[in-house]
Amino acid sequence: MSDNNVRKVAINTTINGQEMDILVDPYVSLLETLREVVGMTGTKEGCNDGNCGACTINIDGRIVDSCLVLGVEAEGKNIETVEGMATPDGLHPLQQAFLEEAALQCGICTPGFLVSAKALLDNEPKPSEERIRHWLAGNLCRCTGYDKIVKAVKKASD
């Protein structure tokens, strides 16, 4: 902010396998840091209060709403976002399944769902429908009715 003397903080963090040094205002969220400082807009803002899951990212193996974490908290952490899911060999099986099952309509919630679902499958390769629905309860989708999302996650786990 221009009217006070808050100084930016230098942090060292790893995003999708790439270590980087960035300067962040101490009061901005990690979501804002990713989008405005690092320039990675794949992580979306739907509510900025931790209720929609569109900004879901993975920090050191745990999924979090990046709007509820400060940018400075990324110091020393290993962060994964939707941009890190595909590899030079192609899409992650979840991304492929979302496309094949038409599990997105507008697509704004899709990055959050993919990051959440990946964390589930990383730990539980064969989740039940009930388990998938429970795991994805923190991600809002207003277009699909979740049917095809649940099917896509199931398909990616097969």
């Binding site: 989008r35 595909a86 496309l99 993919l114």
Partner: peptide, 20 residues
């Protein structure tokens, strides 16, 4: 597979607030 699907599952698709 929808034509715009790849951009939308990789975070590459640009929505309203993504334009800089």
């Amino acid at each position: 597979i929808r034509h715009d699907g790849y951009d939308k599952v990789t975070g590459r698709a640009q929505y309203g607030a993504d334009i800089k």
